[in-house]
Design a protein around this nucleic acid. Structure first.
Lengths: 188, 188, 188, 188
DNA sequence: TATGAATGAGAGTTCATTCAT
DNA sequence: GATGAATGAACTCTCATTCAT
């Protein structure tokens, strides 16, 4: 019956590492196979193509993150608390699973091209959250898309700085400071 | 014949358009040549390789922007004014030369891989600016890299939202609002 | 378990169907296994390779046909009767086991490449038959190979036309007409 | 401007030779390139794929033959003369351009799979010819498709026998004999 | 200087075959 | 005996780059 499928995990981790280091197009399927210590044809049993692999390892953690994000939001009452929880979730994930997060952050515009229309991203949730808080007077009146852009951009630039070595601190220790700082941008 | 300079310009504009639409690796030199209406071998007289072209059209506007940025900074006294001027410069450039700016914004992490070490980016200027302002008490005490990340991320996410169609307004009309908003994050 | 013979039969029928539809090289062992509802590795317990399978299912019915043909010939006295019997045998087999016959007819030149030298085909029997009949004065003097080519080509083109849909009638009802017609070519 | 395209001819001749010897699927594009003494990518400048090449070198001579056949038919009055002319045309072509004809004859069922629906073959012309001759009383009443099958099969099996070494004579010297013989099958 | 036919290294992918279970 | 996950040789095809014209 053959042994359990450890191979798929190896392939994913290898791909993740190489995609972050060299980009998707800069990585060959042969390199992935070699690093994962599997045969060259093995990844094609799990993913139809290199593209499909690149998309799958983008989509899986993002979808999981989105689900967690929705759950997290429900657990907090005020926008400020929600915002803090989201930032925390981002930074904890980053420190916990850096390869995956680096890939999500750096491949964003590359993989976006393959995104199916109507694909749900954290941005849509953030926009909705802002709009709801505005009706409750928690967030000052302003274009919700603009607010989302500013928050989203600010919060996610911090791990990118860490990837590039500009920031060394553990991001989990920066949750409060970042939250307080970005909160100033939108508080009523 | 007839203005070799024009051919080079055509190549650059064609490459810019295609690189933004399909990514650098997703664009073939043949497609660039076809769009630029030049022979397939012509771009190799102007650029050593496709990579060199991709880098050149990234580096040129970025270096120019950096020079302008340094000049702009000198023209203003306070950090708040400097910040406003920088944001304005960004957004004016975006609305004036969208292909080039889209490329700079979307290819950032892709082309970054080819960046020579010690390459000067707007980030280093921003960090320096923040640190100077902190000694003058204009900006509140905080990690300058963190401050730069937050400002940089926030300001540049706005045009990215516009590229993806989330924002439609002319960014030049948003300079003041964005400046005021991000300023709140760092003001003393 | 449970009738290993049945599995082999399933494999053969599946291969036959697919080889006729898509050609030998156009059919994968996985497709054969899927259609035969057996594991991917199972056919390799019965046949050394895909080639061996392709040859076996070509050789088996052909050898059987040849044996029948020799028997049939002995049962008839005159060449005309023998010819009729052969045509009948062909057309009955075609209508009885169309997959196998289609494969024999269509894969002829493809599988011929794998034919061992000195392999006995219906052609050699036909040539011998013609030569014998010529000595008896039943068949007019002419090159026996040429006569065989004309008879063989004419008789077998009919089922090929049926495969391609040009002829719809049951070939068993055409035995007499075809025999009479081709007989005219060689009768003394 | 580069020299004239001798390369395409070389590719065609190489492909023809190898396709006949080893079959289309049994021939690699590398082998074709090597035999044609061109780079491996060169054939793809002329043909979109190996399949397209296989089809093109099947279609080109067949279409040319068809055109010649139509012209030939018009030059003769009686069916018998037309038939003789067609046989002659076939056998002259075979002796003149054996690689091409061998390919047409042996790859028939293989390439047929790629044939566009409604593709005109010599068979349709033959059928039409027979039907016309039947109304004029030249050909005896019989199913025209059957008549075509018998004639077509008989006439073309002769060069196939020659390919397999069963016949050695120059086919051009057999035109009259073959014509007379197959004519017996259908004459009124 | 500009061209585009030609190149060939190297990419993604397939699939007959193996073998541990 | 049967299975199907794994393999990797070998395939078709792409495309950045060269260079004779």
């Amino acid at each position: 019956m053959s042994r359990p499928i450890q191979k798929q995990k190896d392939i994913i981790e290898a791909a993740l590492k190489l995609f972050v280091e060299r980009g998707i197009e800069g990585t060959t399927t042969r390199e992935i196979a070699a690093l994962a210590k599997v045969g060259e044809g093995t990844m094609f049993r799990h993913y139809k193509s290199k593209e499909a692999l690149a998309w799958a390892i983008f989509d899986e953690p993002l979808s999981a993150f989105l689900q967690d994000m929705e759950d997290t939001i429900l657990k907090h009452a005020t926008m400020r608390q929600k915002l803090r929880a989201i930032v925390e979730q981002c930074y904890v994930l980053f420190e916990t699973d850096r390869p995956r997060c680096s890939y999500l952050l750096l491949a964003e515009h590359t993989v976006a091209r393959r995104m199916p229309v109507g694909y749900k991203t954290p941005i849509s949730i953030l926009v909705r959250l802002i709009e709801e808080s505005q009706t409750r007077g928690e967030v000052r009146p302003m274009d919700s898309q603009l607010a989302a852009a500013l928050i989203f951009g600010a919060v996610l630039r911090v791990p990118i700085f860490k990837i590039y070595g500009r920031i060394q601190k553990d991001l989990r220790d920066m949750v409060d400071e970042v939250t307080e700082t970005v909160w100033k941008m939108i508080q009523a």
